[in-house]
C-alpha cells in the first residue's frame, strides 16, 4: 500500500517535473517564428507575457490574516515543506526531529526594520513597526545569485523572472551567500514528510537543492495570476514593468514606492508602496 502510493506519487511528481523543466525551453522555441511543431503545440494562447515582470505590494492593504493567506497559498501549492506539520509516522517512520533554523520559505512576513534594515529610523511612524511586509525573491535585474551559480541552475529568463532548475542544482549554496535579501532556502533534508498534501501541478524538490519563489512562472504560462496575487485580496499586483500602460506602472506613477536595498544596484523588481 505504502509502496504503491509512493510509486504513483513519484510518477505524478516526475511528470510535473518534466512539464516544468520543458516549459521555458518551449516558450523560447515558441517565440521563435521558426518554432517547431512540438513547440507550437505547447504554446498556450492564454499565456501571460511581459517584457519584464514586476510586482507591487500595497503594504497598507495587508494585515496579519492576509499575510498568512498569502504564505499559505504559495507554500501549499508549491509543495514547500512546513516543519511544523505533524509527520505521518506510518508513511515516514524514521523521520528525525526538525531544526527550525533549516526551514524553507518562499514568501513570508517581516517587520519593517528586517525587510529594510538600511531604513531603520528611531523616529519612524509607530504604525510601520506593526505592518507586515511580505518579502520574497526580488527577481533582480542584476541578480547576484545568477552570477554566482557555478552550473547556471539559477538563471534569468528573458522576461526578468529569476528561476531555478532543481535538477541541475548541485547544492553548493553559493547563491544563498550571494543573495542580499535572504530569499533562498536550502533543502537540508528530504521535504516529503513535511508536505501535508502534494500538489501534483508543481514538482516537489529533493534534498540537497536550493529553492525560492519563481513568480509562479508555471501559472503565468497558463494565463493565471500568481498564487500570492490571488490570495492577497488586491494587495499584490503583478505586471509588466516595461509597459507604461500596465497597472503596476500606473501604481508606481501615482505613488511613492521603495525597494529593498536599492543601493546595492541589484535592481529588484518588487516594489513596496507604503
Amino acid at each position: 500500500m505504502m509502496e504503491k502510493s509512493r510509486r504513483s506519487f513519484l510518477k505524478v511528481a516526475g511528470i510535473a517535473a518534466i512539464g516544468l523543466g520543458a516549459a521555458p525551453a518551449m516558450n523560447f522555441a515558441a517565440s521563435d517564428s521558426q518554432g517547431s511543431a512540438a513547440a507550437v503545440k505547447a504554446k498556450n494562447p492564454d499565456a501571460l507575457h511581459a517584457e519584464r515582470w514586476g510586482m507591487v505590494i500595497l503594504v497598507k492593504k495587508i494585515n496579519d490574516k492576509i499575510a498568512k493567506q498569502i504564505t499559505h497559498a504559495c507554500h501549499t501549492q508549491h509543495n514547500v515543506p512546513d516543519f511544523t506539520h505533524e509527520v505521518d509516522t506510518q508513511k515516514f517512520p524514521d523521520t528525525r526531529p526538525v531544526n527550525h533554523n533549516q526551514e524553507i520559505k518562499w514568501i513570508w512576513k517581516e517587520k519593517f526594520h528586517y525587510a529594510f534594515p538600511d531604513k531603520e529610523d528611531e523616529f519612524l511612524n509607530e504604525k510601520f513597526h506593526h505592518l507586515p511586509f511580505m518579502v520574497l525573491c526580488n527577481h533582480c535585474k542584476n541578480a547576484p545569485c545568477v552570477q554566482a551559480c557555478p552550473t547556471r541552475a539559477t538563471f534569468s529568463r528573458e522576461d526578468g523572472i529569476v528561476i531555478m532548475d532543481y535538477h541541475r542544482c548541485i547544492g553548493c549554496r553559493f547563491c544563498m551567500a550571494a543573495c542580499p535579501y535572504g530569499s533562498r532556502s536550502f533543502n537540508f533534508r528530504d521535504p516529503q514528510p513535511f508536505i501535508a498534501e502534494t500538489d501534483p501541478d508543481f514538482p516537489t524538490r529533493s534534498k540537497g537543492v536550493v529553492e525560492k519563489c519563481n513568480l509562479c512562472a508555471e501559472r503565468l504560462a497558463k494565463g493565471e495570476q500568481p498564487h500570492c496575487v490571488e490570495a492577497a485580496e488586491g494587495a499584490i499586483v503583478v505586471g509588466d514593468l516595461e509597459d507604461p500602460a500596465s497597472e503596476i506602472r500606473k501604481l508606481l506613477r501615482e505613488n511613492y514606492s521603495i525597494r529593498r536595498k536599492q543601493s546595492l544596484g541589484t535592481e529588484p523588481s518588487v516594489y513596496y508602496i507604503v
Binding site: 557555478p150 547556471r152 542544482c169 548541485i170 547544492g171 553559493f174 536550502f186 529533493s206 540537497g208
Partner: peptide
C-alpha cells in the same frame, strides 16, 4: 567541497555547464 555539496553526485555539472561569471568556476 565535496562533503559540503547538497547533491555531490551532480558535481560534474560544474564542468558540463561551465559558468564563466561564477567565481566558483
Amino acid at each position: 567541497i565535496i562533503v559540503d555539496l547538497g547533491q555531490p553526485v551532480r558535481m560534474l555539472n560544474v564542468l558540463l555547464y561551465p559558468s564563466p561569471k561564477s567565481m566558483l568556476f
